[in-house]
Design a protein around this nucleic acid. Structure first.
Lengths: 132, 132
DNA sequence: ACCCCTTTCTACAGCCACTAGAGGATTTAG
DNA sequence: CTAAATCCTCTAGTGGCTGTAGAAAGGGGT
């Protein structure tokens, strides 16, 4: 399998695959005589794992750890679950902050600014107000 | 007022102020004989506006537009409210996506992974599953 | 006058996770 | 045989800063 096929099998861009190789997330594959990368089914699995992790918001470093752990099947899996639950806590925190932000923006918009001039625009005034 | 005082008056880092000047968000200030930047109260206002906008998640480009509009007091303010409501819609969209992500992560964690080996770690398996 | 510490200056590199483009080689289809 | 697609390497750009190096200037105490 060449890089393009791997890309479409995993809905990844070709450049991204080469990038993952460069930063060491994917192993350097064998090459054809002319220098083209060749991949196997295990590479599809590994790349799918990486893409799913990214979709779930794991950082490259977290993925590196998860992959390293997954490569040691006999090992205790508590480290992996730790990474995941820490990530969940992060997401919940961001969710709370974003919710607060939404409320702030929504109340700004709700104040309304019915076709007046910039000089008395309430939205601008709301932004300009120092942090409460 | 020198740059350090402006920084502490707006809880901004000195380097960030210089960065905002470089990208044109803040005007180039007057300098002392020895080349130090000097600021006035209007710079405090402008920088506070910028910092509040960032805190609300507006991009630098959006802030540039908002500032340009705010500088024309007689102008109709519909453009400014448009920027704000578009931003609110963006935030709500991200909020939805992040909520879905949290649910996915939470159900992963809920599956539990009680001290087993990596080989049968459910979290790892959940991540590896192709996109449903 | 001297010393030292802090602030300020410029200019540049680094962060994250890619993405895009130049410019060339090779492969495949018609 | 040619044209299009795919591949290669290398470099630079994105956003929003942050951090560093090395130098100059300012202020306070002895």
């Amino acid at each position: 399998m060449q890089i393009g096929e791997l890309a479409s099998a995993t809905t990844t861009k070709v450049t991204t695959i080469r990038f993952y190789e460069e930063i060491g997330l994917l192993r350097r594959p064998a090459r054809t005589a002319s220098g083209r990368r060749t991949y196997g089914l295990s590479d599809v699995d590994r790349l799918n794992f990486i893409r799913n992790s990214r979709r779930l918001g794991f950082s490259i470093d977290e993925i590196r750890s998860l992959l390293a752990l997954a490569d040691q099947p006999e090992r205790d899996c508590s480290e992996a679950t730790d990474i995941a639950s820490r990530h969940l806590a992060d997401v919940e925190e961001r969710l709370r902050q974003l919710g607060a932000l939404r409320d702030e923006l929504a109340s700004m918009s709700a104040a309304g600014c019915c076709a007046k001039t910039m000089a008395e625009c309430r939205v601008i005034q709301a932004i300009a107000r120092p942090v409460a």
